Simulated assay, not measured.
Amino acid sequence: MSVTIISRAAWGATPWDHDPTSDGPAYVPLSSRSEFYVHYDGAHHITRTGFAIMRAIEAEHFGNGWAGVGYSFVVSQAGEIFEGRGWTRQGAHCPGHNVSGFGVQIAIGGDQEPSKAALAACRALYDEACRKTGRTLAKRGHRDGIATQCPGSKLYSWVKAGMPADGYTAAPTPDGGATPGGSVARYKVTIGGLEYGYGAYGDHVTKVGQALVKKGHGDHYVSGPGPRWTDADTRNYSDYQRSLGFKGTAPHQDADGIPGESSLRTLLGTLPSKQSPPAKPPAFPGRKYFKAGASNRFVEQLGKQLVAKGYGKHYRVGPGPNWSEADRQNVADFQRAHKALAGDADGYPGPLTWQILFS
């Protein structure tokens, strides 16, 4: 089952920047996620459908003093998946677990029966979350995090049963279902200050996967290479090692799928090395510096960075200290090109836009 998510913009969410001091909830890297929490709406049956579900939840959560919908996603009885906080923003669904856990509400309440479509969509979303994070996430009901009746007895029993879904075949978990000590190598090596092997994380891992695909050794990927080294990477790298003539696929043998310097240099043409950490982005000066009539050094600093990142096409004479429509359009292009910002691409920089631009 493919995962189609209805964006905040599509269902009419209030932009995060309704609060002039913030771009919205804090950014959370996928590497911080380890749990998947299922919620329901409370004691009463839910009769709302479609976009009305999200607007009602948003209004309720605004009333709680939160920055809009607190769940990562909401699943309707029709099997629709709506974006709330999304993949990379801190939730407001389970105190103590809002960074480590995705929070997903299935829009039912009381003793209402969850539909097959809702359960299948939620399970597909769980599998997509595992794929994105590169790990098998713990399946949780809200009551596993704090003392509450949520997600109700029916959904909680479903979660404890492993989240089965009629008519839906679960995707392979990121680790391929292998267990430590099994036939797939589960150790790491360090080459040039960078880790390779099961659990290693970083852009260098993605580049290895992309190089394997280019060489014709990507058969074990379900959805393509990513920054977390999984058993799929190990199996593909083992295929590549055997194509070079290495023998033995058991752990710690020459073709076990864990890189050595020789095979890695042959694959990439060079041996990558750990780079010095990037300079810390300059502090965001505040929204007041980026509006009609503003003239200051921060506008020029912003414009020069946009040009350096390839987002300066609307300038006719180059960036300067006077805020202009060209600045706004270039910022909007940059926001649309970055998933964490694309839902609110109004062209006015906030703290998150500034952080990503200068990172």
Results as ranks from 00 to 15, higher is better:
Arg235Phe: 07
Gln275Trp: 00
Leu267Arg: 07
Lys139Asn: 06
Lys288Gln: 13
Ala211Gly: 09
Gly68Phe: 00
Gly145Ala: 02
Gly12Glu: 03
Val317Pro: 03
Lys154Leu: 11
Asp17Thr: 12
Ile146Thr: 12
Ala345Glu: 00
Asp203Tyr: 04
Gln149His: 13
His204Lys: 10
Pro277Met: 02
Ile356Met: 09
Arg242His: 08
Ala120Pro: 06
Gly181Gln: 06
Pro277Gln: 13
Glu35Asn: 11
Pro351Arg: 09
Arg287Asn: 08
Thr4Ala: 12
Ala185Ile: 03
Ala250Asn: 14
Gly193Cys: 09
Gln105Ala: 14
Ala171Met: 14
Leu194Tyr: 07
Glu128Gln: 14
Ser76Thr: 12
Lys304Cys: 00
Ala279Cys: 04
Gly167Gln: 07
Arg8Gln: 08
Tyr187Cys: 00
Lys313Arg: 13
Pro164Gly: 02
Pro227Arg: 14
Gly293His: 00
Gly193Arg: 10
His220Trp: 11
Ala340His: 09
Val189Trp: 06
Gly79Glu: 02
Lys160Phe: 00
Ala59Gly: 07
Pro259Tyr: 03
Arg89Thr: 02
Thr190Asp: 14
Val222Tyr: 10
Ser273Gln: 14
Phe358Ala: 07
Thr234Ser: 11
Arg143Tyr: 13
Leu352Tyr: 09
Arg287Val: 05
Leu155Ala: 14
Gly96Tyr: 01
Val69His: 04
Ser22Lys: 04
Arg265His: 11
Gln105Leu: 14
Lys304Ile: 00
Phe102Gly: 02
Thr148Phe: 10
Asp256Glu: 08
Ile53Trp: 01
Gln301Trp: 06
Leu212His: 08
Arg228Asn: 15
Gly86Tyr: 04
Ala292Gly: 10
Pro351Tyr: 12
Lys247Glu: 12
Thr4Trp: 03
Gly197Asn: 02
Tyr237Glu: 00
Gln149Ile: 12
Ser34Asn: 15
Ala171Asn: 06
Ile191Trp: 12
Pro95Ala: 09
Gly176His: 06
Asp17Tyr: 08
Val69Glu: 07
Gly193Leu: 12
Gly96Ala: 04
Arg48Cys: 01
Ala178Val: 11
Phe36Ser: 05
Gln335His: 05
Gly343Lys: 03
Ser263Ala: 03
Met163Leu: 13
Lys215Ser: 03
Ala342Gly: 05
Val99Trp: 00
Thr136Met: 03
Pro281Ala: 08
Ser263Val: 09
Tyr240Ser: 06
Glu325Trp: 01
Thr14Tyr: 00
Ile356Leu: 15
His217Pro: 13
Arg131Leu: 06
Pro25Asn: 10
Ala10Val: 09
His39Glu: 06
Ile258Met: 03
Gly91Cys: 06
Gly226Trp: 01
Leu302Gly: 02
Gly350Thr: 10
Tyr187Gln: 01
His93Asp: 15
Pro349Ala: 01
Ala147Arg: 14
Gln77Lys: 07
Lys116Tyr: 06
His338Tyr: 01
Pro319Ala: 00
Ala250Pro: 09
Pro259Cys: 02
Gly68Leu: 01
Ala255Cys: 10
Ile57His: 07
Tyr37Arg: 11
Val38Phe: 08
Thr234Glu: 03
His44Phe: 10
Tyr196Met: 13
Gly86Pro: 01
Arg242Asp: 05
Lys188Ala: 02
Gly50Gln: 05
